[in-house]
């Protein structure tokens, strides 16, 4: 049976992991390779590396980081953040990334999704979408790390993205992100019924029950979390034990 995936997300800046980490016995918690290997050993099903490096120049270090990650990890990983075009994607896939995620660049130029799907296959193209629920009740998409309104409505944008060739959706609710109060279940469920590719829940995980709800109520194929794991509040094993006890198929 296909399992529900648990995906830690690592923010990387200038080649270093950004968020604070409480792992004991980890020589260098700022090393994205070490941290990724640790998560893989703990039972992570996949990893997401999100590059938040500000300048284009320094971003080139990302390719060499991806090579090191690929050499070390024996599970799949996605790389995202600042990917501008097919050239970037080609370099990252050649370096050993399994999937790439695009966000702002796809909003700016939606046909990028068609191009990437055609050249590299939908299976490695993840459309990342950050959105928030506005006062009128609609979900609006934001880019540039949530700073800039994209002028797109969440559900129509995701549907268009899948039609253009995205093979997976990474949906982050900005309203829920960082709250630890659970994922945006209603929006997730709407997304999951709208498209037939996997949807990854992101933003809001604070306890094991939130992962369960993402699966049960949100109909998500996977759930992503960052701070929860980085600060050592929960281990992947604890989350999976909880899910397994409640009948969710997980890999252990």
């Amino acid at each position: 049976m296909l399992t529900f995936r648990i995906i830690p997300c690592l923010d990387v800046k200038d080649g270093r992991t950004v968020k604070g980490v409480n792992f004991v016995n980890l020589a260098d918690a700022g090393d994205p390779v070490e941290l990724g290997a640790r998560y893989a050993a703990e039972g992570a099903d996949e990893l997401v590396y999100l590059d938040i490096t500000a300048t284009h120049e320094k971003r080139k270090t990302l390719v060499s980081l991806v090579e090191k990650v690929a050499a070390r990890l024996n599970i799949p990983f996605t790389v995202g953040g600042g990917i501008a075009g097919a050239g970037d994607v080609e370099a990252l896939l050649a370096a050993g990334a399994d999937k790439i995620s695009v966000n702002s660049s796809a909003v700016r130029n939606p046909s990028l999704l068609d191009e990437l799907a055609y050249r590299f296959g939908s299976q490695c193209v993840v459309l990342a979408v950050d959105a928030r629920r506005e006062e009128d009740g609609s979900w609006q998409v934001y880019t540039h790390g949530g700073r800039r309104p994209a002028g797109k409505e969440l559900f129509s944008w995701v549907k268009e993205g899948v039609e253009r060739g995205a093979g997976e959706i990474l949906f982050t609710s900005m309203d829920h992100d960082g709250t630890g109060k659970g994922y945006a279940l209603n929006a997730l469920r709407t997304l999951a019924s709208l498209v037939d590719v996997p949807v990854i829940a992101s933003g809001g995980a604070g306890s094991p029950v939130h992962f369960y709800e993402a699966w049960k109520k949100g109909k998500a194929s996977a759930a992503l979390a960052a701070g929860l794991f980085h600060y050592g509040r929960l281990t992947i094993g604890e989350v999976k034990d909880y899910l397994a006890a409640r009948g969710v198929p997980v890999r252990r």
Partner: peptide, 11 residues
């Protein structure tokens, strides 16, 4: 009702 691609860990 399946999601395609078949993506992830299966037995």
């Amino acid at each position: 009702s399946l999601r395609i691609p078949h993506m992830g860990w299966n037995s």
